[in-house]
Design a protein around this nucleic acid. Sequence first.
DNA 1: TTGAAAGCGATACCAT
DNA 2: ATGGTATCGCTTTCAA
Lengths: 344, 344
Amino acid sequence: MSQPTEQSPERSSGRAVPTSADVARLAGVSRATVSYVLNNTSAVRISEPTRQRVREAAEELGYVPHAAARSLRAGHSRMVLIPSSHVPVGPLYSRFFNDFQWALRRLDYTVVQYGSVGLEAEEAARAWAELRPVAVVSLGEVELTGQGVEILKRSGARAVITLGTQRVEGTHALVMDQGRVGEVATEHLLETGRRRIGVVVPEEPGLGMFSGPRLDGARRAAERAGATVVPLPLRYEEESADALAARWRELGLDGVFAYNDEYAMLLMRSLQDAGISVPDETAVVGADDLLLGRLLRPRLSTVRIDMVLGRELAELVDHAVRETDAPPVSRDLLDSRIVRRESS
Amino acid sequence: MSQPTEQSPERSSGRAVPTSADVARLAGVSRATVSYVLNNTSAVRISEPTRQRVREAAEELGYVPHAAARSLRAGHSRMVLIPSSHVPVGPLYSRFFNDFQWALRRLDYTVVQYGSVGLEAEEAARAWAELRPVAVVSLGEVELTGQGVEILKRSGARAVITLGTQRVEGTHALVMDQGRVGEVATEHLLETGRRRIGVVVPEEPGLGMFSGPRLDGARRAAERAGATVVPLPLRYEEESADALAARWRELGLDGVFAYNDEYAMLLMRSLQDAGISVPDETAVVGADDLLLGRLLRPRLSTVRIDMVLGRELAELVDHAVRETDAPPVSRDLLDSRIVRRESS
DNA sequence: TTGAAAGCGATACCAT
DNA sequence: ATGGTATCGCTTTCAA
């Protein structure tokens, strides 16, 4: 016989946490029957009166099944773990993310975000693996190494999906081709006759995943047309923008793609304060089509990004989980197009 | 003897998921010893050579402990569950939230966000309770009823903390006194001689938790001074702002507190387009001190909100978990002050 | 210093 | 139609 364990049997509400055994006792049936009733097991037939008694007992005790015990027994969970980002996100992404979670829940998955700020890639992967998720969907802001993927798969994860700007070995890579954003913006500037094009590169950490590819895309477009691209490091602060505006004329740029609408607004304001006329002297293009881009004058031209539907991605996750053998897919999720207003 | 279970023993990597038994076998020791070594159990002394062998075996197999099994055995988890919001958040909140999570992890908690979009309050509480979190910290955007709190506590949650605008029975209520924001803004407008004050109330759902108290605070301040407050419903769209601006003169307002900087910018632009001069004819005050408030002209006056440190809140959670008996605290977490610029 | 074994809660066989 | 029971992975007591 073992001794009573060290845990306190009482809880704040005064009673111990009810288990299925408690429900069984109260209903005068076995734990097996409780399980059958509460899970609507179709393989077994339980009489209606018994079902009633069990349900009432569960209700009375405030019984909630213990997910850990269940998944331990089952040998798997239906948890989808999403390493959560530390970057404040815009309304676009936010909407997508909600749809995604909602769709996953409809497919009967438990969606959990795991905040991993300040953890090393491998360390983080181990922490996630402890929860034995059936799938991990990394939304790109968190590092995920081949090593980390291996840890997750060894621990039973049936699918690892990265939604980012580049592929990671062993994962389903959903590519958000940020390069297209820079390409579309630059093509537009070229069409309006600009030849020396600045590309704002935010200095804030955590944005490199987006800004790098956007710059590359701009370079590609410019190269095709024999135009020039100049990277412009910028912090999201007035001082930084003012400093950039102060040396604008010596840069000799006639167009600028400003990473996104917020940086574009910031820069445009500084340019105007420095006496540089937009769009006559320099055209400005942002990205994300935020409402605020319409508030400043001239109204900001922008690249509108249409993201994949959350539901689509959820179905892809579901598919990846069920067909572990299927080869990793690699799809592009973005569609970008220019919205021309007055700043270009 | 029971039959082999229904679960597949193989995983995608080809091998089965390693358990502590596998580690024990490879190291040539018992499972108990593995547990002692891997958890650095101080009550037992294991020889250094044995420790080595165990650690190497664990490393080689890529062993990661099974959190569910562990907490099942332990009778409790160290999971802090945070129902995640569906509202896009600003940089201020985002920073606080990261700090908070980081601090909790330092205190050895596992922080997990649970997306509950589209779930009823009680339904959501049950879903959370299945994970048997030791604490639930609701950041205000999600509904949490007394009923829900009861479910959580019955399921073993030692602390339920709400960080919101109003108290919920049975919880530690960390109050973010949004009323102060409206009060501070309105007091400022009164000091500059304004007497008929509009208060923007966003029509977007999910913002009621903030906008209601802010309006109430404005009313309190106005009442003390014998001034008038007029609520102004507004959608975050240009058309809505234009419509409001079109009937501005008949409203006869000489000051407006616009909920936050974004709504303030939106409204100010429409006012200017309608030929109403800011601040001469109408003063405008926002809130949140966003950078974008400095981009439009005149520069936007705002209410700067200082939020509690994430670390403080984490310590409070830890305390609540350890001292279940302690009475629910109720603290104010915000400090608001006016930042006067040119729009007022 | 190490091992054997009980048991956390839920489930799904098999037998009744 | 129900009940008994072995089992999932891990920790910890007790015995050796």
